[in-house]
């Protein structure tokens, strides 16, 4: 399971990096989204992946070993939100830049 997830993260990150280096703004925004998925999964995997562990506490059973690791999950939750804000902002910058420069090249001019 770990290997599959690791390969998945790697492919997401690799595709994202490739897109990040492309000349068109839309490619970059897709690339950034893919990188966010990869990074979120990467942070999440730092807590080790566990099948069928309880994410919600049962006050009666107070053994930490029974539950998933909440720390990476809380971090990823924040990361998802910030990623959303980043995508929205980048999208608008992209549109504004396209309007101002007349091109969707990331350098602001066609080569």
């Amino acid at each position: 399971m770990e290997l599959i997830l690791a390969i998945g993260i790697g492919v997401l990150a690799g595709s994202g990096v490739f897109l990040l280096l492309r000349p068109r703004t839309f490619q970059v925004i897709v690339g950034l989204s893919l990188i966010s998925y990869a990074v979120n999964l990467f942070i999440f995997s730092m807590g080790r992946i566990r099948l069928n562990a309880a994410p919600v506490l049962n006050p009666a059973a107070n053994d930490p070993a029974l539950y998933t690791d909440p720390v990476p999950q809380a971090l990823v939750l924040t990361a998802i939100v910030i990623g959303f804000a980043m995508t929205a902002l980048f999208l608008v910058v992209l549109l504004a830049s396209r309007g101002f420069t007349g091109t969707d090249h990331v350098d602001g001019r066609e080569r």
């Binding site: 770990e2 290997l3 997830l5 690791a6 390969i7 993260i9 790697g10 492919v11 997401l12 990150a13 690799g14 595709s15 994202g16 990096v17 490739f18 280096l21 990869a38 999964l41 990467f42 995997s45």
Partner: peptide
């Protein structure tokens, strides 16, 4: 090539 290296690195690290 760079994307493959970056992705491979992240995959290896997380694994």
């Amino acid at each position: 090539v760079l994307g493959v290296f970056a992705g491979g690195g992240v995959a290896a690290l997380s694994y």
